[in-house]
Structure formats: C-alpha cells, structure tokens
Amino acid sequence: MTTTNRWHLQGTGGHAYSGEEARQLLRHRWDWGSQETWFEDDAGRLLAVVTNGERAMVVLLEREDEPGEHLVDPRGEGFSGDYRLSNGQVDTYADRDTVAFDVAGHALAHFIEHDTWPTEVTVETDCGCGEDRS
C-alpha cells in the first residue's frame, strides 16, 4: 500500500518526495553539511532526522507542539555526540534513542511510502506513558 499523503521539506510545500528520494536527500544533506532534515506531509505531520553521520535521531510528530514518537535501538548502549542542529546547537543523545544512519534512511523511505514504520524497527512514544511499539 502506498500512502496518499505527500511529504515535502518542511515549510516549502514544494516537491513531494518518494521514499527513495527522501533517503537519498538525507545522504546528500549529510554530504553538504546539513545534519538536520524536517519533512512535512499534507496533514501537517512532521518527520525529523538529525544525524552525526553514523547514527540518527528519527522523530515523527503529529503536530509541532505535541509529543510524538521516535525510533529506538533497544540494544544501544552509551552516548553519541556531534548532532548539529540548524540553530547551531550541538547535541549528544543516548544510543538507545538513535539508530544507525542506514536504518534511519530505510525507515524514513518506508514510512513515506507506506505511512507506517517497517516491522524491523522499534518505535517508542514520547508521551511519557511508557508505551513501546515494535
């Protein structure tokens, strides 16, 4: 099943990205020195990827100011740094709250095409309610 929502770069309303185009864009943006990428769909949902080149934080928000969900690596241990945000801030995240960069690209592409995460990733809600989805 392919989704009917169109995903584009946040705030542009421009080109609607296929899943594979979005995955390639992540790689190109990393090559260009852009570590933070925000996509928006026609319903106003936001899909963000922040990477340090090896790992990535992938977040889905239903609305900008509401809690969402993010991909997790249940076996991730320790912390990784050098996640540079567009505002100049540099963050460090627990490896459990990030996934390998290639996993992030695959999950992003799948979500854009099917409006659901691939079965092989683990998703955790950010509402503080303790609900995990695998």
Rank of each mutant, 00 (worst) to 15 (best):
F79K: 15
G13V: 04
S134Q: 08
L47N: 00
L71K: 07
Q10Y: 14
D41A: 02
V123D: 02
G105K: 02
R63Q: 14
L47W: 04
Y17D: 04
A100R: 15
T2W: 03
D102N: 14
S86K: 07
V49P: 01
T119A: 15
W117P: 00
L47Y: 13
L61G: 04
V58M: 00
S86P: 00
V50D: 02
Q24F: 10
V99C: 03
H28N: 11
L9R: 15
L71T: 07
E69Q: 08
A16G: 15
G14F: 02
V72L: 07
A94H: 08
T116G: 07
E54T: 15
W7S: 01
D95F: 00
D42H: 10
D132L: 08
S34G: 01
R27H: 12
D65K: 07
D102V: 03
L46H: 12
D91V: 05
T4A: 09
V49C: 03
R6T: 01
A48N: 03
Q89V: 11
G88Y: 05
I112L: 12
V103A: 10
D31I: 10
G88M: 01
C129I: 00
R6G: 01
I112C: 06
G76L: 04
H110F: 12
Q24H: 10
D126T: 14
L26D: 05
T92Q: 13
R23K: 13
T122E: 11
E131Y: 11
T4I: 10
E40Q: 15
G11V: 03
Q10E: 15
E131K: 07
V59T: 14
L25T: 14
E40W: 07
G19F: 00
G19T: 01
W32E: 14
D115I: 08
T3I: 07
P118T: 02
R29Q: 12
T116C: 04
Y93S: 11
E64V: 09
E124S: 11
H114Q: 11
L85I: 00
E66K: 10
D126V: 04
E64T: 05
V103C: 08
Q24A: 14
M1F: 06
T4S: 12
L85K: 06
R133Q: 05
R133K: 02
M57G: 03
L71I: 08
D102W: 02
G68C: 00
D31C: 05
W7P: 06
G13I: 02
R75G: 04
H28K: 15
V123A: 05
E54W: 04
Q24E: 11
H15A: 14
N52S: 09
I112M: 10
Q10S: 14
L60K: 05
G53V: 06
E20T: 09
E54V: 12
E131S: 07
T37R: 06
H28V: 13
D132K: 06
L46Q: 12
G19V: 01
